[in-house]
Every structure is written in C-alpha cells, then in structure tokens.
C-alpha cells in the first residue's frame, strides 16, 4: 500500500491565514457574534464570467483549491474531493425565500443551480477542466474527514497518484442565525461563535516536496464518553503507536456540554502532551476541523505551535506525530493522525 504524502495546506478562515505566512502570530480569539472569514481578493484568481454567480463558499473553495494545487505543484489532480456540512447555504436561502415569498412564481434558476451540495467540487473541476474522480461528502462534522479517508484510500490503492481534498462551509445569512438560537436554548450550548472557512490540501503518493504524511483517519458515528479513550488506543495501536508517541493533540472544543469527550483525554492519557484548542479562533462550523488539519500540517512543517492555540503550557522540541480529534454534539467523531516525513 502506498503512503499518502501532504504537499500543501491552504486555508481561508476568520484569521489572516491566506496571504499571511506567519502561522497565526497575529491571530486573536473571535469576539464578534459570528466568525466571518477574511476573504482574499477573489477577482485575482477567478475569471469574471465564472465569479458572477458564486456565493462566498464557492469562491473560498475554488480559490483555496487553486492555491493548494499551485503550492503542491499539481497541474490537474487525479481526484477532487470536497467535504461540506451545510453545502451552498446562501443560495439555498435565496431560493427558499424566493419560493415562499413569491408563492412558487417568477423563480429564477441561478440560486437553485448554485445551491446544490456539489457546486464547489463541480466548479473546481470546471475551472481546471479536470475530468477525473469528483466526490462530495456532506455528513456534518465528518464531511471533511470522510473526504480525507477517501483521499487516503485512493492513494493507498493506487487508484490515484494525486488528490486535491478540502472542506468548505459558508455562514450564509439566515440558517446561522437560526442555529445560533438553537444553541442559546440549550443549558450549555456551543460557546464559540459560528463561523466559516475553506481549506484545501494537495496530496500525492510521491514523497519529494512533501512535509507531512496522512497516516490514518477513522470516522465513527457514536461512542460513549467512557469508551472514547479505549477507542483511541485501538486506533493508535493499529498504527503502531502509544499515547506517549503523540507529540501534540488538536481538539475541536467549542465550549458545549460535549467537550467532556476532549476533557476525558486531556486529563488522563494526554496530561503531559501539548494540547491545542482552535475553535475560539476559527469559529465552529461543520468543516471547522479543516482549520485544525491545516494547523496540524503547519505545526509539522514549522515544528512550532502558535501561542494562541496552545491550551496548556507544554511544548516540545520535536513534533513527529500529531493527532486530531473532533466530534459534534457527541456524534460524528473523527481521529486523524498526521506524521512528519
């Protein structure tokens, strides 16, 4: 089986992560109600004819994808894989409102066409004229990780030599407000703001030029808090590792009652491990773990942890293996293991 090497990691987020190369030196916790993305100048990357119909999510996805391929020196990938929890929610809102407000009359097609979940993947393919494998995963907080799993499978089995994989979600205008309301109704709802962003990664079976390896991904729907540590142990054992081999853990804490899953590990097996918590700077959204994955990649590349992300004060000289763990409301769990190459 081939190894899945990571050649590029590009992210558009609520922080200055696209143009700025300082790895979150100037980043700060988001204090606004929503963690809106800092958008690049899209016109520099997308032709006018294509851009005019694109909602923010599509623009973020297409530009992050383009930049990721550039950095990975991949012209046309042999697979394009996108994860998105909510899909193109802004155009869904537009078409829904038009449909209801006009009582099914005088409806224009554009927002319907653009509302389809696979729009980002399709627009990337269209822009590149890439006729290869093209897939979109839409399973909540494991949308991106399902894509990672597929990417790794394609490379391991030699079905593809190069893969572009990423995740994207946009805030939209109404659904995010409604989901916020739901959180406020909870006794201990999500504490970090809802956000948006996109991250894309160039992967290949070639080692030259790579800075990290996607070792393994596990996606599972449910597990009890009591069983989470043994579940992780089995995952690590499968990869020939022990808890103490993990040099940093990146966890998707968002302040809600389900953070107990993370606390369970932080207070036991990872007590002496550098602990990273990132959603206070990225915001929470179904593909927020893309930000964590991006940070994990750059951590391995630069061998440092940005101060803003470090939860405990433990640091290490060398970072060889990095583990990501994310879940949403006690469901949609994922372990992702990255290694330096």
């Amino acid at each position: 089986m081939k190894t899945c090497f990571i050649h590029s990691a590009i992210c558009i987020s609520a922080q200055e992560t696209f143009y700025n190369n300082d790895f979150l030196k100037e980043a700060s916790e988001v204090t606004t109600e929503f963690a809106s993305a800092i958008h690049p100048v899209y016109k520099d990357y997308i032709p006018p004819a294509a851009i005019r119909r694109m909602a923010p999510g599509v623009k973020m996805g297409v530009v992050a994808a383009k930049q990721s391929l550039n950095e990975a020196n991949i012209n046309i990938p042999e697979a394009i894989i996108v994860g998105t929890g909510m899909g193109c929610i802004e155009d869904s809102e537009k078409f829904l409102n038009a449909l209801i407000d006009n009582d099914e009359e005088f409806l224009a097609p554009t927002s319907f066409i653009q509302s389809t979940h696979n729009t980002v993947g399709a627009q990337i393919a269209l822009g590149l004229q890439c006729k290869a494998y093209n897939m979109t995963y839409v399973h909540g907080a494991v949308s991106f990780e399902s894509g990672l799993l597929d990417a790794q499978l394609l490379i391991q089995t030699s079905e593809a030599k190069t893969v572009l994989v990423g995740g994207v979600d946009e805030l939209g205008k109404e659904f995010s407000v409604f989901f916020n309301k739901i959180e406020k109704q909870q006794p201990q709802g999500i504490q970090v703001p809802f956000g948006e962003g996109a991250g894309f990664f160039g992967m290949s079976s070639e080692k030259a030029g790579a800075f990290a390896i996607l070792k393994d991904v596990q996606v599972f729907e449910t597990v009890s808090v009591a069983d989470i540590t043994s579940k992780l142990k089995a995952f690590l054992t499968n990869n020939g590792l022990l808890f103490q081999d993990i040099d940093a853990i990146l966890m998707g804490e968002n302040g809600d009652a389900y953070d107990v899953y993370y606390h369970e590990m932080q207070a036991s097996v990872f007590l002496k491990t550098p602990q990273i918590s990132y959603k206070k700077v990225s915001g929470e959204f179904y593909t927020a773990s893309v930000f964590g994955f991006w940070a994990g990649c750059h951590l391995l590349k630069r061998q440092e942890i940005p101060k803003i992300l470090l939860k405990n004060s433990i640091e290490k000289k060398n970072y060889q293996h990095v583990l990501l763990y994310n879940q949403y409301k006690g469901k949609e769990h994922s372990f992702t293991l990255l290694s330096r190459c």
């Binding site: 389809t116 979940h117 897939m135 995963y137 839409v138 399973h139 399902s146």
Partner: peptide, 22 residues
C-alpha cells in the same frame, strides 16, 4: 447528514457512517 443518522440509529450502526451528495 441528518437522514443518514436517522437510518444509522434505526439499524444500530455506530461505526463508519457518512453521506454523499453529488
């Protein structure tokens, strides 16, 4: 992903569960 989760619950599947939309 919601309909998939409901199906997973109905079937008792707790491991790998995902949704595709192409």
């Amino acid at each position: 992903g919601d309909s998939t989760q409901k199906i997973a619950e109905q079937l008792g599947i707790t491991e790998f569960v995902t949704t595709i939309s192409t």
